[in-house]
Design a protein around this nucleic acid. Sequence first.
DNA 1: GTCACCTTAGAAG
DNA 2: CTTCTAAGGTGAC
Length: 171
Amino acid sequence: MKMRGKSSFVEIPIATLFGEFIAHYSEKGLAGLNFPKAGSARQADQTSRRGVPTTILYWHRATTTALKNILAGREPKNTPPLDLSGGTTFQQNVWRALRKISRGKTRSYGEIARQIGKPKAVRAVGGACGANPIPIFVPCHRVLAANGKPGGFSGGLNWKRKLLAFEGISL
DNA sequence: GTCACCTTAGAAG
DNA sequence: CTTCTAAGGTGAC
C-alpha cells in the first residue's frame, strides 16, 4: 500500500491466475487498474492493509471479486464505484460511452466518435481509449476497428484478445 | 513547434 | 484488393 498526495490515494495488488494486477483507489472509488507486470505471475499478496480506510477495503473486495469473475469468463455481480475524474472532458465523454457497451458486444472507434457528437474525432477516440486508467472495468477492449480487426491496445493486444475471448467474442 | 498514438472514409492504381 | 491521404485530441519532448 502506498499513499500519494494529500487525499488518501491507495494502491493495492490483486493476485490472479494471470499475475498481479494493481488497483488504485481515490476517495471516490476505483481510479486505476494496472495489468500484471511481466514475471509477477501467481505472486502472493502480502501487502499490509494497515491504515487503509474501511470504505476502500470494501471497494477493493468488490474489485477483486469482479476481476476474478471476469478472468473466469463470468459476468461480475458487484463492481466498485469508478473514479474517472482524472481525464479531460473529451476523454470522460469517450469513457462514458465505452461503459454503455454491454458485455459481449463491440463498437468501432467511429461509432464511439459519432456517439459523443464528434464524428471526425475517430483517432482521438483511440487516444482516449489508450488513456483509459481503468481497463477491463471501462471496457476499452470492446472497441474494434471498423473492419473488424482488433486495432491496438496499450496493455498489449494479447490482453485485448484475451478479454474479448472471456466475453465470448471471437474476432 | 513537432511527433506519435488503440482510425477510417474515400480516391487512385 | 492494395496503397495513399487527410483529419482530431492530447501528452511527451
